[in-house]
């Protein structure tokens, strides 16, 4: 093949790929653009792509009308809180399974995963009633608890696969060097597993941030995170495209950025290690 043949092929591929990429990305781009329009421009016919009066008023109005940042903060608390709590529990469990495997370890691991496959509607009613009776309904504590539990299997699983890659000899060396179990986990295992722990954290924050079954069903107003808050725009009186777009842009921006950073780890985490 000559150089020009390779180049023209590359040009065509680039054009097709960019075309499809932009097409797939377009709804997000359109949302971001609309968030800078006035409500009138947002529903103008024909639609305006770039030649509109750019404005930031939607962003301030969303906050003024609905205490947006309260919901944003709820999302942060729920996703970060459930992730940290989950990590704390999962690091211990994953250490046990990776470094002191017993006969039943594999089964425990599989069983933990199987809980993730339990459809949420199967336990919706009892959880709803239990939360109602214990006052956990519409509280951040309740949501942190539930999200910790639904994502715990994924955290354990991901950490397990990362820990498996750390040679056991290093932990034994620490033991010979006089490290207690805690010292071994804190001074040796955790720092060595930082990349794995970080990507597990990232993926879990993404999953928790976007979780939209429990957050919708267990919150009313006070503890509602962004998933539930945005859902309130589904009512007809909420048909303000520009404001919806501004709220949406802020809701997805942090996760988009985190997601782009964690693409690689995402594959391993989302397929439970079946694809690396």
């Amino acid at each position: 093949m000559s150089h020009t043949a390779i180049d023209s092929r590359k040009i065509i591929m680039t054009a097709i790929a960019w075309g499809i990429g932009l097409l797939i990305f377009f709804p997000i781009l359109w949302t971001i653009l609309t968030s800078f329009k006035t409500e009138a421009d947002a529903i103008a016919s024909p639609p305006m792509f770039l030649g509109f009066d750019w404005t930031l008023e939607n962003y301030t109005e969303v906050q003024d009308r609905s205490n947006y940042f309260q919901h944003f903060w709820n999302s942060v608390v729920i996703s970060v809180g459930s992730t940290l709590l989950g990590l704390l529990i999962a690091i211990l469990a994953a250490w046990s399974m990776a470094f002191v495997p017993a006969k039943g370890t594999k089964n425990v691991l599989m069983w933990m995963l199987s809980t993730k496959m339990l459809p949420p509607v199967g336990v919706l009613i009892p959880i709803y009633l239990l939360f109602r009776d214990t006052g956990l309904l519409d509280t951040l504590t309740g949501l942190v608890l539930v999200l910790t539990l639904i994502n715990l299997p994924i955290i354990v699983w991901m950490l397990y696969t990362y820990f498996k890659e750390i040679p056991g000899e290093i932990l034994e060396a620490a033991r010979m060097d006089g490290a207690s179990l805690w010292a071994e986990i804190i001074h040796v295992l955790t720092p060595m597993a930082v990349p794995g722990i970080a990507s597990t954290m990232l993926l879990n924050i993404i999953l928790a941030w976007n979780e939209a079954f429990w957050t919708l069903n267990l919150t009313a107003a006070k503890a509602a995170p962004l998933t539930a808050f945005i859902a309130s725009y589904s009512s007809p009186e909420g048909l303000f495209y520009a404001k919806l777009s501004a709220a949406s842009t802020m809701a997805i921006a942090p996760i988009l950025i985190m997601g782009w950073f964690s693409q690689k780890q995402l594959v391993r985490g989302l397929t439970f290690g079946a694809v690396k």
């Binding site: 990429g21 709804p27 945005i230």
Partner: peptide, 27 residues
């Protein structure tokens, strides 16, 4: 395939996965 800006295209394609369900449905 070999192309220019593969990393960026990849990011564009992956993006919808990170959009929360309520947002994408409403948009």
């Amino acid at each position: 395939q070999p192309m220019w800006g593969q990393g960026i295209v990849r990011i564009l394609v992956i993006a919808p996965f990170f959009v929360m369900p309520t947002v994408s449905a409403l948009v």
